[in-house]
C-alpha cells in the first residue's frame, strides 16, 4: 500500500515576537514588519506523521501552503525534512482570506494533485488559532474528517483507527481512506532536518501556483471570497485598574499584603 499524502502547512510570526505585533487602529491592519516568521509549530506534527507513514508504507508527500512569497522559506524547510514536493499557492488575490476562502484555495490546489489518500493538518495555527481550515477543507473536497487525532494507525486496505481527543477523554474512531485529519502534538515528536536535507532543499524547486494557474475564480478567494471581515477595532475598557506600588521591596510587599487583606483576597 503506497500512500499519497498531502500536508497543509502555514508560515506564522514567531510566537516569541507576538508582543511586537501591533494592530494599527487607523488602518485596522496588522503590522508585522521585521518580525521573524517560522513554520507553524503544530504543523510539524502533521509533517512528522506523514514522514513516518511514508517510511512505513512508501508513497509521496506533498506540502501545500497558501501564503505570501516569503512563505517559500517554510516550503524549503518542508523539503529539508523530507517531503517530495512543495507547492505554494501564492497570489495577491489570496490576501485577506478568512478560513473558508483559505480552505477553498487549498482545496483547488489539492484537487490538481491527482489521487490523494490522506491530508494531514495541524490542529491550529499559532497566529489565528481558529483550527477551522482543516475541517472546512475536508467538507469542500467531500472527504471525511477526524479532528484532534492524538494517535492513529493505518491497517491493510486503508482502514484507519484513531483516537480523537475530547474533553475528559477520547473517542475511538474508525474510518477508511481517503481522509483529512488534524493531529495533536501528542501524536509524535517532530524530527529536525538533517544538514544534508537542508543543503539539498535549497536546490529543489518550490512550485508556485497563482489564481490563473489554478483557474480559480478570484471572487471565491481572498477577501472577496470571505464571508467574514473585520469591521473595527476598539480598546476594551477595563474598570479595574487599582493601586500601583513601587519602591523598596520589603515596604512594597508589606503594603501589598495589607491591601490584599482589605480586598479579602487573603484569608
Amino acid at each position: 500500500m503506497r500512500l499519497n499524502i498531502v500536508v497543509c502547512i502555514k508560515q506564522v510570526p514567531h510566537p516569541e515576537h507576538f508582543h511586537e505585533i501591533k494592530l494599527d487602529p487607523e488602518s485596522q491592519t496588522i503590522n508585522r514588519r521585521g518580525i521573524p516568521a517560522i513554520l507553524n509549530p503544530p504543523d510539524k506534527h502533521a509533517l512528522e506523521e506523514a514522514l513516518q507513514l511514508k517510511e512505513r508504507y512508501g508513497g509521496t508527500i506533498t506540502a501545500v501552503s497558501m501564503g505570501p512569497p516569503e512563505a517559500s522559506q517554510i516550503m524549503e524547510e518542508a523539503y529539508a525534512l523530507g517531503v517530495d514536493r512543495s507547492i505554494l499557492l501564492c497570489d495577491p488575490l489570496f490576501a485577506g482570506a478568512d478560513t473558508l476562502a483559505t480552505a477553498r484555495a487549498l482545496a483547488i490546489g489539492i484537487q490538481r494533485l491527482g489521487e490523494v489518500d490522506l491530508i494531514l493538518c495541524g490542529t491550529h495555527s499559532m497566529d489565528g488559532a481558529t483550527g477551522q481550515v482543516g475541517p472546512q477543507l475536508a467538507e469542500i473536497l467531500g472527504f471525511p474528517f477526524i479532528g484532534f487525532v492524538r494517535k492513529m494507525e493505518i491497517q491493510e486496505r486503508g482502514t484507519v483507527l484513531a483516537e480523537r481527543t475530547i474533553e475528559r477523554g477520547y473517542l475511538k474512531v474508525e474510518g477508511s481512506l481517503p481522509l483529512v485529519l488534524s493531529v495533536t502534538k501528542e501524536i509524535n515528536t517532530p524530527r529536525l532536518p538533517t544538514v544534508i536535507g537542508i543543503m539539498e532543499a535549497t536546490q529543489k524547486e518550490i512550485y508556485t501556483w497563482d489564481t490563473k494557474e489554478l483557474g480559480i475564480d478570484p471572487a471565491l478567494v481572498g477577501i472577496e471570497g470571505s464571508p467574514t471581515r473585520v469591521s473595527g477595532i476598539f480598546e476594551r475598557r477595563l474598570s479595574r485598574k487599582g493601586e500601583l506600588l513601587q519602591g523598596d521591596p520589603e515596604e512594597v510587599i508589606r503594603k501589598a499584603i495589607k491591601r490584599l487583606r482589605e480586598l479579602e483576597a487573603l484569608r
Binding site: F18, I21, L23, I30, R229, S231, G232, I233, E235, R236
Partner: peptide
C-alpha cells in the same frame, strides 16, 4: 494584537 485591543468581526 497588542494590549487591550479587541477586534470586531462581522459577516
Amino acid at each position: 494584537w497588542g494590549g487591550n485591543l479587541m477586534v470586531k468581526i462581522v459577516c
